[in-house]
Design a protein around this nucleic acid. Structure first.
Lengths: 117, 117
DNA sequence: CAGAATCCTTTACGATACTG
DNA sequence: CAGTATCGTAAAGGATTCTG
């Protein structure tokens, strides 16, 4: 195989997709683009995500070094999550996907609704 | 919610991610970038994907209008799959992700291996 | 060879309840 | 309020087998 120009089963490019493969991970990443946000804020803002799923995503994203946890001392507990510098680098590809969806998403939806054949 | 700048639970941008969320879908899309390929070729080329998963992905991608099936009459059966024009438009975002992985993928792997803190 | 059908295992994710 | 643990459901995907 000398054709490894990307995206094979064991290709490093797969990493990016696995990173975003989970339903909420890209959503959370995007929601954090502005700056630190608290978990509860994320849940409310995104809508439709359970606190548990939120936590799992946050865990994955932290493990990947894309998101950082910022504990604020005090009572009641207060925590912020924010993108790491590495995490910020993902915003551009994310935006590219978003732009594609905005441009061609309608075509996909139409196709799925009325099969052209 | 007046902050719908993208990527909420019900945001249209989600479509792009759901499209690529399945493990093999982006891989197959990428494998087809050059032109028509036969299923068996795809399985061999990609490696690690079962024929069933391949078929399911191909179905989804066809339903989404990203991939087209080209039956060649004859015996034994011969079929080619190729990207539709719509499918081709996804190659750019795909490449963007791939580039990101090539650039920052290593950082992610490193982080996951040795938690920085 | 294409691809659909069946079986089985893993895991994402929601709901709920509990701990610090 | 943050985060974890448990339970239950749905679905992805591998292995195998059968049909056109």
């Amino acid at each position: 195989m000398t054709d490894h120009q990307g995206l094979l089963a064991d290709c490093p490019a797969r990493l990016a997709f696995d990173l975003l493969a989970h339903t909420w991970d890209p959503v959370i990443l995007w929601a954090l683009r502005r700056g630190p946000v608290r978990p509860h804020q994320l849940v409310k803002h995104i809508g439709g995500i359970s606190p548990k799923a939120m936590n799992q995503s946050l865990h994955r994203l932290r493990a990947a070094g894309l998101v950082q946890r910022l504990p604020r001392p005090g009572t009641p507990p207060h925590v912020d999550y924010t993108l790491t510098p590495l995490g910020r680098t993902l915003l551009t590809p994310l935006a590219t996907l978003g732009t594609w969806a905005a441009t061609h998403g309608n075509a996909v939806t139409t196709t799925q609704t009325s099969p052209t054949t």
